[in-house]
């Protein structure tokens, strides 16, 4: 007994030692900055950036309408920008999903070196700088760009097509950047899918569509959900894609936060904005998570 107790406490010590570096890293570089942001969001903005150490909850008032004072006014434009960001993020999830889901089945059906090659190609974009890759889209989508010229030469359109600086161009860029993040979790899930279940479904009289809805989709749902989460979150906060492909016409909350910190130098407002979005995402996913774990709990009882 005493010996197992000693072993257990030794294991515990080893575990603590192993976890220490990550804990310290996250503590110092994530939790402390986050704490600073929380504090700053309730402080008065300094004239030239920075903060004045006065209790000042009105930064939130500009965003959600309460509390307000004489200087801060509620502006619904922020909510509108948020809704537009939400829409773009959701469309991005939909776009990456539509591209990745069939592709995952296609790749999972491959064998040997071909499969490794394709998986390598999926990871390849990470080797090139994101700015460069998005600039490439700038060249493709602008009125004198590749896409417009191509369509003009085929006679499908008469005037040059200006796709740039629209929600569409932002979504294209986002889908392009984030597709690997959707593909990989779905692929990992599809790869594990037991094909004999598909055969069993067919054997029991189900059509292909019924098999897809009743067997394949539910069994690959964890991959779809996982992929959607890790595409949705960065899509909602992304500011590089909208600032390059959206210009000044498409505003997303990411740009807004960037601008409050770097251009208008209103740190407390930027902090409040960032924290509200973070709160939104956390609430959304803890709801989803609790629902999921509840249904799984029912399953195994």
């Amino acid at each position: 007994m005493a010996e197992t107790g000693a072993t257990a406490s030794r294991n515990r010590r080893t575990l603590i030692l192993l976890l220490a570096p990550l804990t310290i890293l996250l503590g110092v570089f994530f939790l402390i900055p986050l704490g600073i942001m929380v504090v700053y969001s309730f402080l008065e903005p300094g004239l030239y950036g920075g903060v004045e150490w006065n209790w000042y909850p009105y930064n939130y008032g500009r965003l959600i309408g309460w509390p307000l004072n004489d200087y801060e006014v509620f502006d619904p434009i922020y909510l509108k920008i948020f809704l537009n960001s939400l829409q773009i993020a959701l469309m991005t999830v939909a776009g990456t999903l539509l591209l990745s889901y069939p592709a995952a089945f296609w790749v999972a059906s491959m064998k040997g070196p071909r499969k490794s090659l394709v998986l390598f190609l999926v990871a390849l974009p990470f080797f090139a700088n994101m700015l460069v890759r998005i600039y490439a889209w700038l060249l493709l989508l602008r009125p004198t760009g590749f896409l417009s010229t191509l369509l003009e030469s085929t006679g499908l359109i008469i005037e040059p097509l200006d796709l740039l600086f629209t929600n569409f161009s932002v979504i294209v860029g986002m889908v392009y950047v984030l597709t690997p993040f959707m593909f990989l979790p779905i692929y990992a899930n599809v790869e594990k899918l037991d094909y004999s279940l598909v055969r069993a479904s067919r054997d029991l009289g189900a059509t292909n569509v019924q098999t897809l809805w009743r067997i394949i989709l539910p069994l690959t749902a964890p991959g779809i959900i996982g992929g959607s989460v890790i595409v949705f979150i960065p899509a909602l906060g992304n500011f590089i894609v909208p600032s390059l492909l959206g210009g000044s016409k498409v505003q997303m909350t990411g740009n807004l936060i960037e601008r409050s910190f770097l251009q208008s130098r209103d740190w407390p407002f930027g902090a409040a904005l960032a924290l509200l979005i973070m709160a939104f995402v956390v609430v959304l996913f803890s709801l989803q998570f609790s629902r999921q774990s509840k249904s799984e709990g029912q399953g195994t009882r």
Binding site: S196, L197, A200, S201, R202, D203, L204, T207
Partner: peptide
């Protein structure tokens, strides 16, 4: 296959893991 009046018991049973026994049996 899905229209033949035959049914198969598979080597690994191929039960649908996300469905209860009842839903499995009711599937067809």
């Amino acid at each position: 296959a899905h229209r033949r009046p035959f049914n198969t018991v598979f080597q690994n049973y191929a039960l649908f893991p996300h469905l209860t026994v009842e839903r499995n049996v009711a599937y067809g």
